[in-house]
Every structure is written in C-alpha cells, then in structure tokens.
C-alpha cells in the first residue's frame, strides 16, 4: 500500500520505527499518523461500535469523525488519524468484536 516512489513527490525517505497493535509488532515510518501506519500494514479495523459491534476504521482522516479512536499507551480514545506514531508506541483497538 505504501507509495515508495511517486512521480511528483519523489521517494519515501523517512526512518523506520516500530509500533505494536493489539500486541503484534509492525513497522511504521517516522512522522506518519497511526492510521496511515496501520493501513500501510493492511489494518483497517480500528474500533468496534457499542450497539451493533460493527467494525469501524478511518472515515474523515482529519480528526472530525472520531471513528478512528484507539487506545495509545493506555490512553483511551486517541484519534489515530491525527496522532503521530512514535517508536515503541503500544496501540490497541477499542470496543468489542463480535465473537
């Protein structure tokens, strides 16, 4: 999913760092949002809704909709789309998936 080379914007040169999502380790690039890093790792589901336990992911991408809420290093309801990844960050999805 990563656009490593772009005809106008050039090459991606950001440094690689590590994050975990629901206990699993993934690579992320310095400076990107949690949502972008997870998507680059093919993860789309960020939370489950309360009423119907439906999966939700990025919707607005700029902090308006709160659909991308995740728990970051223990802090709940952080918006993944406007929070920058940091090395060693522990991220968890919110809500309960239907079993």
């Amino acid at each position: 999913m990563r656009i490593k080379k772009h005809p106008i914007l050039g090459k991606l040169e950001e440094k690689e760092i590590n994050i975990t999502f629901n206990g699993r380790e993934f690579a992320a690039l310095e400076g990107e949002s949690i949502a972008a890093a997870l998507l680059a790792n093919h993860i789309r589901i960020l939370s489950y809704t309360e009423k119907r336990q439906e999966p939700r992911g990025i919707y607005c991408g700029i902090g308006h909709c709160y659909e991308c809420r995740v728990t970051v290093d223990g802090e709940r309801s952080v918006r993944a789309c406007i929070t920058t990844v940091k090395d060693g960050m522990r991220i968890e999805s919110q809500g309960e998936s239907p079993k």
Binding site: M1, A36, L39, I58
Partner: peptide, 25 residues
C-alpha cells in the same frame, strides 16, 4: 458506508498524498 475501507474523499487524499499510503488498490 460505515464498513472499514469506506472513507471520505479528503481522507483518501491525505493518506495518499501526505502519508503516502494508498487508501486501497
């Protein structure tokens, strides 16, 4: 439209051109 993978056009734009991740294939 609430299924993950469905997003606003602006989200797709930022993911694609700023974060450099294709919102989909």
């Amino acid at each position: 439209w609430t299924i993950p993978g469905v997003m606003s056009i602006g989200a797709a734009q930022v993911l694609n051109n700023f974060h450099r991740v294709n919102p989909g294939k």
